[in-house]
Design a protein around this nucleic acid. Structure first.
Lengths: 223, 223, 223, 223
DNA sequence: TATGAATGAGTATTCATTCAT
DNA sequence: GATGAATGAATACTCATTCAT
């Protein structure tokens, strides 16, 4: 793809890039082509595979792929969209569990950092591909932004559940800042944004601990 | 490049990817080809240009390019290496100025965050390319890590200059954590890691302020 | 079709390319597919359409098309054959009227040229497609020749009805020549043979008049 | 080609579709690719060949073809343009000879018909391809029209050289009509416009004779 | 040194035809 | 009879790299 995309519906749910609701045999073959494509994307990179390979690996004909997807680009987007849906679900579950288990902010913050890190870590490989692609494909970046915004809302809401413990009065603002800083730090450590210069701190576990501590101190003690 | 790299010398100084110390006319034409390549990379992306275009834009023959660089990949790496050197220089200057102007940690932290953000912002476009490429090219990611490590050392040293004000006794560890968190947050906000999901906080200026405040509180008050 | 044709029955009546005498619903759907194909052929060219499109436009399944026609080629031939039948009918009617209305050769010739031109003009679009296809498909060119031969016979017979006025004694030969020249000139002017270089005479009406005059003079006065 | 063409310079001289004036080895390889393409076009039809085949047959690399021609379409156009130039030259020579050898119109007309028929016959195969292509490619049809117009001018001028013998006073008009009728008849007989329904007159030699006679009678005796 | 013409492997996409239902 | 999902062969074009001059 020469780094440009057509008109474009802004949503990246699997339905917007795939073609028809499938069932039975069709659904199975759709699954096989998505799985084959995902495998290749993870091994080689977002676009570094051929449809020939997907056809072979997924035991589907080339024509079948074009029956479901308008283009190779849309196949790539579908793989990403699928993963983003799984992540959103995991994130929601995680957040509910963390809130339920945390009596106060001091319990919440480290647990949240740790759990969020784990969710991201589990999905890191495809998340990385998703973010790489988002850097030039609006059909991926737009819905990605939506999703990030909903993550922020959920996290901010959870923190504000402990607002009685907050210091100062810019509660929401501070919660937002905390979320951004947490996400940025975790993403970087998991090399989501890129691989390059991350992971130089000997102890990643340690950074997570400091991150929780920092946010806790910030929310409770910064004016 | 199909995501693989040959032998691979681990350094990415301009000399390791370029061929020989140039002089006079040769040096000028080397400059023109680097400038032409950089322009194209910024306009289109890391590899989305042809050597034909570099040849035209830089008024150098294709043969000349291969006289200086073993491959197109090495040309790309040289452009990146050049920029990384400029960044390192700017960063060192910036750090010296910030330290000189800051009497205590409360003065240092916000000024450092602000100034570092500015340095990164100025170099963001090529830095973005550099990080994209680092995600699959060890010849870019390895030296990138080195450079990041030196940035960390400098920042940690600067913060430790104010260690008397630190709370607790894990001084170095906390300084390292602060640096990581600052860098990750700034990088993300500048879309260095990718573009996708960044920049959802209304006020980027505000995030920088919070970031400084958070680190300050953390260093001075977290046990 | 890569310019080759199988076995090949030499007739191109609709029955030879279609499969069975249809009736009721089937006949209606046959009509719809022929109409849809004709529409597409006129819009885009002889083969520049897909069966998918015929299926959609004619509200018939792809399978249905293959139930009636052995191949896409035969569908195209059927569209052409249908049109050729319509033309033959129009031509016969036209000829009868012209003869009935013409007392002598001086009345007949211009009227015939004019009327024949009108018949060809009305059918020009499909006639053009027919002739394009005939250039490489014997299944179209062979029956086309038959039809042209019958046109010639009818025209020659009509002219010979006025043989008393002919000069010289190679009556039939001259009538044939006149027919050929008339047909060739009209066909060219209507861009039947191709589009290219036709229609450069300012006044097409004028050319028809000259054509009639020329043939009249030729038949009555050439030795 | 999906039957549409870009902006388009209206001329179809070899220079407008080819890329650079060649010399030496380059010129030879350009010649080989044109010859190979022409051979394939004559065997199969205008576009019914692959560049792979041209590469093999002409002993040139695919890349070389694209070095000379922007597209396969332009290669086809170049083959046609070359032939059109040769035809124009032959036609001019022929016309000069015919005029030089003809004392009066009675000598000129049959000789002209005969000679023009011969020129067209010699070039018939490629001329046929040219006209087929012209039916949908303006880059071929436009210059084709120009060329036809110049043919008309030359023929009309030649006939008017004998205007003293003309009857009536619409001299130019009649000469034009005669040319059109001659060209149309010859073209049709040579199956230039298509193949289909031509050549049904037993004796093609005879038709040419009648054609000459008809035009002669027309010019000298039609009022 | 310097040039830039020549090379040719590699790949997304279309669409006539088949055949299980 | 009717359907339309599945098949997969076939092909124009790009561009990094080489090497004769």
């Amino acid at each position: 793809m020469p780094r440009s995309t057509k008109a474009a519906e802004p949503m990246l749910v699997p339905e917007s890039v795939s073609r028809q609701p499938q069932q039975g045999r069709s659904k199975a073959s759709l699954g096989r082509m998505l799985a084959a494509a995902e495998k290749l994307m993870l091994e080689r990179g977002n676009e570094e595979f051929t449809l020939q390979e997907v056809s072979k690996g997924g035991k589907v004909s080339i024509g079948s792929i074009y029956l479901r997807f308008e283009s190779k680009d849309n196949l790539v987007r579908a793989v990403i969209a699928n993963e983003l849906e799984r992540i959103a679900a995991d994130e929601a579950t995680m957040m509910a569990e963390v809130v339920a288990a945390s009596a106060d902010l001091a319990a919440f913050m480290p647990r949240y950092v740790e759990s969020y890190a784990e969710v991201l870590r589990q999905h890191a490989p495809l998340l990385r591909l998703s973010m790489q692609r988002a850097s030039f494909d609006p059909l991926v970046s737009e819905p990605g932004k939506q999703r990030a915004f909903r993550s922020e809302e959920a996290a901010v809401a959870a923190m504000l559940g402990y607002r009685a413990e907050f210091c100062g009065n810019r509660h929401e603002q501070k919660a937002k800042a905390a979320f951004h800083i947490i996400f940025a730090t975790l993403a970087r450590q998991l090399s989501l944004g890129s691989t390059g210069e991350s992971a130089s701190l000997r102890d990643w576990a340690e950074l997570k601990a400091e991150l929780g501590r920092m946010c806790l101190t910030y929310l409770k003690q910064a004016e």
